[in-house]
Design a binder for these strands. Sequence first.
RNA 1: CGGGGUGUGGCGCAGUUGGCUAGCGCACCUGCUUUGGGAGCAGGGGGUCCUCCGUUCGAGUCGGAGUACCCCGACCA
Length: 490
Amino acid sequence: MAKEITEREDNYSLWYNNLVVKSGLAENSAVRGCMVIKPYGYAIWEKMQAQLDKMFKESGHSNAYFPLFIPKSFLSKEAEHIDGFAKECAVVTHHRLMSNPDGSGVVVDPDAKLEEELIVRPTSETIIWSSYKNWIKSYRDLPLLLNQWANVVRWEMRTRLFLRTTEFLWQEGHTAHATRQEAIEEAEMMVHLYEEFAKEYMALPVVVGRKSAGERFAGAVDTYSIEALMQDGKALQAGTSHFLGQNFAKAFDVQFTTKEGKLEYVWATSWGVSTRLMGALVMAHSDNNGLVLPPKLAPIHVVMVPIFKGEEELKRVVEKMEILKLELKERGVVAKIDDRDNLRSGFKFAEWELKGVPVRVVLGPKDLQNGTVEIARRDTLTKEQRVFEGVEEYIPQLLDEIQKSIYNKALSYREANSYSVDDYATFKEKVEEGGFIYAHWDGTAETEEQIKIETKATIRCIPMEDKVEEGRCIYSGKPSQGRVIFAKAY
RNA sequence: CGGGGUGUGGCGCAGUUGGCUAGCGCACCUGCUUUGGGAGCAGGGGGUCCUCCGUUCGAGUCGGAGUACCCCGACCA
């Protein structure tokens, strides 16, 4: 069933229409591949932001903000870094417009050409490290643990809603440390923080691992990531954390004096997650009726739909709902009463299901008489009749139950679509079917590349809890020490 | 950047060999009846048919150029 969903164009819009306007500003090439995030979609992002921000601060980080524009010369200081991003940069060359001499609109004023072009940040390592140079002089200034919430622009050849938009919102952490060991620990801690966030809040099971050299971030010594499996069998990199070694410190000449009075380069990390997480959330859980949101990230937990004939009845039902709404509020549950009188209840049910609201409460005249209420779950689409008394206690429990249930469903899907494979023929078969494929790899870039060319599968990661297991490379037959995860990726 | 496709009210589309006043469904507005799984009837509003150039008595329809978007590859969080 899951495969049908993502292959059907109308389901794509079924899932996304409540959250964003897809490439809404046509006729303007400058907004190619961008998206307008609607209030309901943005509310989900805000909930993610709030939780992540809290977790960052609890682990000792602070927020800061750096400029959107990066002088071209900054970007070119780290060789690998610029290699990785040069092909996808938006460049500002002028700072003024003027009326077109022929009277038709405005044109770029040729006199307003910038001496040095500015790059719209594709990521902020360079501009941040040019500041760190001035901020870090002594071991007492370390570690420096900063994060920034920002937008970035990457002019990708091909865009895809949520997963690869030209402009996207994200957070990027940039830390500086006195020792190699401490920086590695930071990078690992952050990838595990992302793992916890995905599991606990997004109800999304992820695999934590290390990237192969070929998949590593431009300028990193080591890249860690969380990898999730979507319902169509494709893998999605949902967050990354990089150990940058001393590459940026050397490129920007950031040295500090140690306790012993020696001059040393600092060690760095960077890590980030983006609005891609919203894509992951949607693609991992949603069904043919629309979005399925985990309660911990749902902007609205409970929607209450009144059943009524005439204004009098509506008033009586809504009165009771208002009381329940307040009782739920005290328990941290956000409820919405849908008292629109121009729509039938069936329409409302369908509409709120599209939006993924976890719990629906239906109350009508019969319930008022019998002291009952109908409670429906979005994740299982089941309904139950309950005694009204005590629902304010029941609903928070139900929300917890739904959160767990969504996670477990996603987990069993992943487990049902994870395979250990030992021969290349089966490997190719499984790649076609989709899912995570655990296989032995000889560790060479050549093999990785050949497999990619032949099957389109890439090494998603080398899992962290790598059990040492003797084996032979699926492709070359050379000895291997453990399995890595292959999959087709977005 | 290669290959394919599509541009017609807010959304989804029809309009087939050029022809009369450019249609349909959904949405929207008004009224009445409805409301326990996407309501019914009646009335109403809303269009530079992507742009420019050309062919023609006449172009949504034919030709050329441009442009935007979508899908598939290479690239990527």
